[in-house]
């Protein structure tokens, strides 16, 4: 449509500047530079190290337990990641996850609903609470930190009022079945679900319009708005999605426990916050928004699960565990940083 336009007399200097971007060249080079690769390396390293140095790590029993807690950690990480995309954060995901699983538990126990329907309604509640977060943020213009700080109390408090903190513990057997089955003797089906959900997230960000809208809004809300993207819709959807993912994590946790328990994510659901941020951040997501990696968040969550599990098997003294966890985390980010330096030297853009 622009044929016949006189060519711009451009100097070629700018062009050459960008062509030989990497000494390693091409996609492989970019992957070796990515934090995903660094994480993969660390996961393999930690896995191999624990496999060789502890007894019990390699046992099917332990691998099964590891896969099950990794499944939940992955979902918690993805939940937070879906909000980090928009440049915000959600402190209330723990509260949402608990609320959702409690509702599902109530439907199964008190209303005798079948498990699938109850879980579906629980997930819908998660989505609804996330949606509420998003709407408050969009309509008031307050920072998501403040809003979710308050709604964390409101959601959790509301749940406590309604349940008087009583768990729902006579759930139908088919509900907790997925948490007990073994695939190949050592893998929990929950991990398969988590990986499937992660694939759906990757699909969302790579191959759908709304996923791209979310990324654009997270990176630069004003530019996205002017490009005809509804920033408020994208932000609301990010929060709603975080709510649904948190609900899935909550339901998985109650499958594992065989009961929907108000305290399963700690007071106000705060126990989830650490893994929630660690996964995406290790995975290379930018806390200011607009850049995410689903694979990175998954690997980050797996790394944390492996380290947690492996440290328990090493006899470092019960109370020094947390110290070593901290040091390993520091080590992980430092190694990652060093790797970037090594690979990037000479071909930084």
């Amino acid at each position: 449509m622009l044929e016949g336009l006189p060519p711009a007399q451009g100097s070629d200097a700018t062009e050459t500047q960008y062509e030989n971007a990497g000494r390693l060249g091409g996609k492989l080079g970019r992957f070796l530079l990515s934090s995903e690769f660094g994480l993969l390396l660390l996961v393999v390293l930690a896995f191999a190290g624990f496999w060789l140095s502890t007894r019990g790590f390699s046992s099917p029993f332990n691998q099964f337990g590891l896969s099950r807690s990794a499944a939940v950690n992955i979902l918690i990480s993805l939940s937070m990641m879906s909000v980090i995309v928009s440049g915000g954060l959600d402190l209330s995901i723990g509260a949402i996850g608990v609320c959702a699983s409690i509702l599902a538990g109530w439907l199964m126990e008190a209303c005798r609903w079948p498990a699938p329907a109850s879980v579906a309604v629980g997930l819908a509640l998660g989505g609804l609470l996330g949606f509420a977060n998003g709407q408050i943020i969009v309509r008031t213009g307050m920072h998501s930190f403040v809003v979710t700080l308050a709604t964390m109390s409101v959601f959790f408090g509301g749940m406590i009022i309604l349940t008087t903190a009583k768990p729902f513990d006579s759930l139908p057997d088919d509900f907790s079945l997925p948490a007990q089955q073994h695939l190949f003797g050592a893998v929990s089906p929950l991990l398969v679900y988590s990986v499937l959900i992660a694939c759906m997230m990757a699909y969302l960000y790579r191959l759908t319009a709304i996923g791209r809208d979310m990324l654009a809004v997270g990176a630069n809300a004003r530019a996205a708005l002017l490009s005809g993207i509804s920033a408020s819709r994208a932000v609301t959807l990010c929060h709603a999605m975080a709510g649904i993912l948190a609900a899935v994590a909550g339901v998985m946790l109650s499958m594992r426990n065989g009961a929907a328990i108000p305290s399963m994510a700690g007071n106000l659901g705060q126990d989830w916050l650490l893994p929630a941020f660690l996964g995406p951040v290790l995975g290379g997501a930018s806390l200011s928004g607009g850049r995410v990696s689903v694979l990175g968040a998954v690997l980050g969550a797996v790394l944390i699960s492996v380290i947690n599990n492996g440290l328990l098997l090493l006899h470092v003294g019960a109370f020094w565990l947390q110290f070593f966890l901290g040091m390993l985390l520091l080590g992980a980010v430092m190694i990652d940083k060093a790797r970037m330096r090594v690979f990037a030297s000479g071909d930084r853009r």
Partner: peptide, 20 residues
């Protein structure tokens, strides 16, 4: 600040008006 998304690629910028 408003014209482009600096931290995104060329395609993601130019495509932002046509995705939907």
């Amino acid at each position: 600040q408003e014209g482009v998304i600096l931290s995104h690629g060329v395609l993601a910028n130019v495509g932002s008006t046509v995705w939907s």
